[in-house]
Design a protein around this nucleic acid. Sequence first.
DNA 1: CCGCATCCGAAGCGATACTG
DNA 2: CAGTATCGCTTCGGATGCGG
Lengths: 105, 105
Amino acid sequence: MVGDKWSVLIIGTLAEGPIRYSDLTAAIPGISQRMLTLTLKHLRRSGLVTRTAYAEVPPRVEYALPPLGASLLDTVLALAAWSADHQAEIRHHQATFDATTARND
Amino acid sequence: MVGDKWSVLIIGTLAEGPIRYSDLTAAIPGISQRMLTLTLKHLRRSGLVTRTAYAEVPPRVEYALPPLGASLLDTVLALAAWSADHQAEIRHHQATFDATTARND
DNA sequence: CCGCATCCGAAGCGATACTG
DNA sequence: CAGTATCGCTTCGGATGCGG
């Protein structure tokens, strides 16, 4: 689930509170409507995200983060913390590795 | 990084101690040699895994988990714990969702 | 025994156009 | 406003055969 880039971004955005479909599009630069719809459906199926549609004109649909989703957020945040913590070290390793490895482009 | 299924499995296997290439193949069912080599290279590049080749006959290569890799293991384990913890709940949601959603295959 | 290169089918994703 | 359907490209991944 965390392997899905968009899932993480959506959950991260939802962490700040319920948000509308169109606002999600704006809040997550680079996401296509296809992926937004697909990922939201996936997340809803797993119960990580809830969808509330209001029978109004104009239509309004809000997505929110139920407790289950929030619990995943915590864990993912821990992962993000690790990432931030070791980012420099990893980049250093990569640079060293690249320098060591003979690349004949 | 956790998005890479094989990376996680390899790190999980390496957690039990250094292991040889061929044993990795056996320890991780379903992995192809291509993916094993590719993923190991990727992990080495990031410094999450170390490689030690012994100039012997027959050749022997051992992969191990340095501190950096072990630290990621901890975090990933936390994620796995979350997964195990909420697995049943998620499956329930999925079943409900599938039942609710009219699927016209 | 260890690892890489190539071929090729499968799946993912973005862009676009269309429906309720 | 909120989605769905289709198309084309890119990437992923398995199988096989070769080099160190």
